[in-house]
Write a protein that binds this DNA or RNA. Structure first.
Lengths: 208, 208, 208, 208
DNA sequence: TATGAATGAGTATTCATTCAT
DNA sequence: TATGAATGAATACTCATTCAT
C-alpha cells in the first residue's frame, strides 16, 4: 500500500512537471511564434536544461503535439461554454460556429500551431498515427456541438456532418486570409463574413 | 546587329538557367516540403554550388517569391482558360471557382507554397513589402474572373467582392482539410462540398 | 558537503576547459594572426567542434575579449613586478615605462591583439561597450604605476596623466615601427629610443 | 612611329582606367572602412565587374598597396606644402611634424590602411618585397623634411634621423590612442600633446 | 531526475579568384 | 579589355539530440 501511494505521488509530481513545461511552451509560442519555439527556448522558459525535457517528452514534436492537444481541448471548452448560454437550436448553431471562429481569431498562435501540425510541418514521421488519431477525435468532439445543433434544427445526420465540415472550412479559410492580411485587400471584416455565412446556413436549414 | 543578337542569346541562356533553378526549387518543395527547401538543397538539386545561385537570385526569399509568382500566374491562367469555355455568367462563376479549387487540389505543393505565406504572414516579414504587394496584386488579378462573373450576375461591386473573398476562403478551408486528410473523417468529398457551396451562392444571387 | 565538493570540482574542471580554449585561441593568434583566428580555427586547435565553444563562451568576441583581458592582466603584473624591484621614484618611472615597452616588444602577438582594438575601434563596435569599458579600466590600472611614479617625482596630477599618455603613445609608436620592421630603415634600436625618451622626461620632471 | 603612338595612347588609356579604379577604391575605403572594401565593392564603385579589375591589378592586396602608395604621396605633398610656408628651421620642423600628424588625424582611413598594410594584415605574402621597398622609400621621402629641418637646426645626421623616427613614433602612438578613443580616458587632446612634444624637441635641439 | 558537455548537421550569405566567351 | 558564370572555402552561429555523470 505504502509503495503504491509512493508511486502515485511520484506520478503526480511527474505530471505536474510535465504541465509546467507545457505552460512554458505555450508562453514561448505566444511570444515568439512557431519559429522561435525551439527546444532551448522552451527549456529556458521552463527553468530547465534542454536535456531535461527529454525525461518528460520524447522529442520537440511531442511537446508541440501536446500543446496542440491542450489547445484543442480549450477550443472545445470555449465552444461548449458558448453553446451553454443559448436556448434555441439556431442560436446554438450560431454560437458554436462563432465560438470556433473567435477562439482562433483571438488566439492566432493556436491557429498557427494547428496549421503547422495538421500539415506536414513536422519532418521525421509527423505526429505518429496514435497521436494523430487522438487529435482527430478531440477535434471531432470539439465540433460535435455544431453537428448536434444542426440535427436539432432538422438536418439529417449526413447533412449535419457536411454543415460542420463546411463551417470548419469556411472559418479556417477566413482566418487564414485574415491572418495573412490578405483579406483587407477586399475591405471586408472576416468576422462579419463568418457571421453572414452561418446566418445563411441557418436560414437554409430552417427553410429547407 | 551581331552584338545585339549575342546579347539576346546571352539573355536567353541566362533566363533558361534561372528557370532551371526555379524548377529545381519546385522539385525540392515537392519532395522535401517547405522547411527542407534550403538554399543548399535547391542548389544541389539544380546541380549548382550554393554561391552560384546568388548570381541568379538575390536571396533565398527571392527564389521563394519567384516560385510563388509563377504558381499564381499558372493559377490565373487555369482560371481564365476555364472561364473562356463557358457562356453564361452563372457558368462563368462556377467555372472560375471550381478552377481555383481544382488547381490547388491537383497541385498540393502550390497550396503548401501558398500556406507558407500564412506562416510568414503571422510575423509579417517573409517576402518583403514590395514582393508581398506584387503577390497580392497577382492574386487579386487571378480572382478577378470571379468578381466579374458575380457582377454580371447582378451583384453590386461590394457584394461581388465579398463573394470572391468568401469563395476564396471556403475553397482554402476545404483544401486545407482535404490536404491534411482531416476531411475523410467526416466522409465527404471536398470537391463536392465546394461545388455545392458555389451552387448555393449562385442560387442566392439569382433569387436575390 | 559532498555535494558542495562535487560542485567545486565541476567548476574547476569547467574553468580548466575554458583556459584550454583560451590557450588554443592564443596559439591560433600567434600562428595565424588575428584574421585567421576564426572560431572554427580556434575550435580545431582546441580539439573541439565549433559548437562546443558556445558552451564555454557566448561568442567569438567574448573569446577575443577574454584573451585580451588576460594579456592586459599579464602586462600589469610585469609592470608591477618591475616597479617593485626599484627604490627611487625616478627608477620606478623608468622601470614602469620600460616594462611596458619590453612586454610588448617580447610578446608581439599581444601587441597585435592590442592593435586589433584599433581596427575595431575605427568603426567602434568590436567588443561591445561593456567589455570595452572593462578593458580601458584594466589598461588604466596597468599604467597606474607610471602616473604614480610621476607624481612622486613632483608632477601634478594633470601632468602625471599627460606623461602617462605620452609614454604610452611613444612606446606604442616605436613598437609599431619595430614590429613592422620599418624602424631598421633608420638604423636605430627601438628600445634605445624608448630609453632615451623616458630619460629625457625624467630629466624634465626633475629640473621642472 | 604610328605604331609607337598607338601603343602610347593605349598605355595612357590603361593608366587612366587604373586611376579611376584607385579613386573608386579610395572612396570605398573612406565610406566603408577597410572591412567594407571588398573587391566587389570597389568594382561596383568603379562601375566594373570584379573580374575586370584583374586586368588592371594582380589582386585585391595590390589595389590596397597602390592606394597606400598614393596616400603616402599625398602625405608627402602636404608636409612639403606646410614646410614651404615657413621661414626658420624651427618653424620648418614644427610645421613638418604637425603636418604629418594632421594628415592622419583628418584622414583616419589612410591611417587605418597604413596600419593594416604595414602590419601583417595581408595574408598570402604581404606586399611583396619590391612594393615594400618602394613604400619605405616613399615614406622616408615624406619624412625627409623633418630630418632636413633638424639638421638645419644643428643636429647631426644621426641625431636628425632619430628625431625623425621619434617624431613618427610619437605621432603614430597618439593617433592610435586618439582613434581608438582610448585617449579621452586621460582627458587630453592628442594634437596638443603632439604640439608640446615637438616644441620640447625643438627646445632640446636649440639648447643642446 | 537533471545537468554540463559535446556533437554533427545545418543556416544564409560573402569572399577573392578563375575561366570561357 | 571586359563580362557572366561559377567555384570552393569561409563566416559565426543555432539546432535537436545524446550521453556520462
Amino acid at each position: 500500500m505504502a509503495g503504491a501511494q509512493r508511486l502515485e505521488r511520484k506520478q503526480a509530481v511527474s505530471d505536474h512537471k510535465r504541465s509546467l513545461i507545457l505552460d512554458a511552451a505555450r508562453r514561448v509560442f505566444e511570444q515568439e511564434g512557431l519559429d522561435g519555439a525551439s527546444l532551448r527556448a522552451i527549456a529556458a522558459e521552463a527553468g530547465y536544461t534542454p536535456a531535461a525535457l527529454y525525461f518528460h517528452f520524447d522529442s520537440k514534436e511531442a511537446i508541440y503535439a501536446e500543446v496542440l492537444r491542450v489547445s484543442v481541448a480549450r477550443l472545445r471548452e470555449e465552444i461548449e461554454r458558448a453553446v451553454a448560454k443559448t436556448r434555441s437550436p439556431a442560436e446554438k448553431l450560431r454560437a458554436a460556429a462563432m465560438a470556433f471562429f473567435d477562439f482562433y481569431a483571438s488566439n492566432p498562435r493556436d491557429l498557427d500551431l494547428g496549421f503547422y501540425l495538421f500539415r506536414g510541418g513536422m519532418k521525421p514521421h509527423g505526429l505518429g498515427k496514435e497521436r494523430d488519431k487522438q487529435l482527430n477525435a478531440a477535434l471531432a468532439s470539439a465540433l460535435q456541438s455544431i453537428s448536434d445543433a444542426a440535427e436539432e434544427l432538422g438536418a439529417k445526420k449526413e447533412e449535419a456532418r457536411m454543415l460542420t465540415v463546411d463551417t470548419f472550412a469556411h472559418a479556417a479559410g477566413l482566418l487564414l486570409l485574415a491572418h495573412t492580411h490578405r483579406i483587407r485587400m477586399f475591405g471586408a471584416s472576416a468576422r462579419d463574413l463568418m457571421a453572414r455565412y452561418i446566418a445563411d446556413r441557418i436560414d437554409q436549414l430552417k427553410s429547407g
